[in-house]
Design a protein around this nucleic acid. Structure first.
Lengths: 107, 107
DNA sequence: CCTAACCGTTAGTGAATCCTGACCGAGCAA
DNA sequence: TTGCTCGGTCAGGATTCACTAACGGTTAGG
């Protein structure tokens, strides 16, 4: 029962099928059946993946008749991107210290 | 094309312990024992995680006496960040299209 | 030589994950 | 109403993952 793990955006993006769904959703909202038709897995699997993505806040769901249209959440994607960018900038900074040989030590 | 799963950067970042290692490595290179001392797992686990990260190209290893100093690879981190940024930009573009379909003059 | 410290590898276990298939409710048309 | 499509959920089985513990190899120092 770890909400952090289950709803973690990183864990959600770890699966290749889920990244394929995100990639298709980035080009526009789509329904479950449409996604399943383009992917080599069943609708059940797609539905379960969408549940994970929705739980992670990466996608949002909207009812349209009998269909459920899912769309990507740019804010959540940007949040993960920014976190990665922070790692990148910190790495550059620490390497600059090493290159400058300026007696670095960090807790 | 093939074993992307094991050496995939996204799968590598899926684990919380691995992200903790990356976060510490972002502040500067560190040895295995040092990382294990700061993490709630054994040295064996840290070594295995570092192997996964190295296999994914996220970290690089350098021998220093009996120690193995690991450092973060900013290029690999930037690559993942850029991929996420692409999703973000595509999503914004597709949403602009949807907004344009609904109301083209919505400021 | 021997000892100590550091690290990677392997074997094995328990848990989490991904998939398919079947079942059931919701909405739309004849 | 009946029939159809679409989608979420449950149950299962197979695969993968993360961890601990024990072992062997390498380097530095006495």
């Amino acid at each position: 029962m770890n909400p952090d793990r289950a709803s973690d955006g990183w864990s959600a993006l770890a699966d290749g099928t889920r990244r394929a769904i995100v990639s298709r959703l980035a080009d526009g909202p789509q329904a479950v059946g449409q996604l399943a038709a383009e992917l080599p897995v069943s609708r059940s699997a797609v539905s379960q993946h969408l549940k994970v993505l929705k739980d992670a806040g990466l996608v949002s769901e909207r009812a349209a008749g009998t269909r459920r249209v899912y769309r990507l959440n740019p804010t959540a994607v940007a949040a993960l991107r920014d976190q990665l960018d922070t790692f990148w900038q910190r790495a550059l900074t620490s390497y600059a210290d090493v290159a400058g040989q300026a007696t670095k030590e960090s807790a």
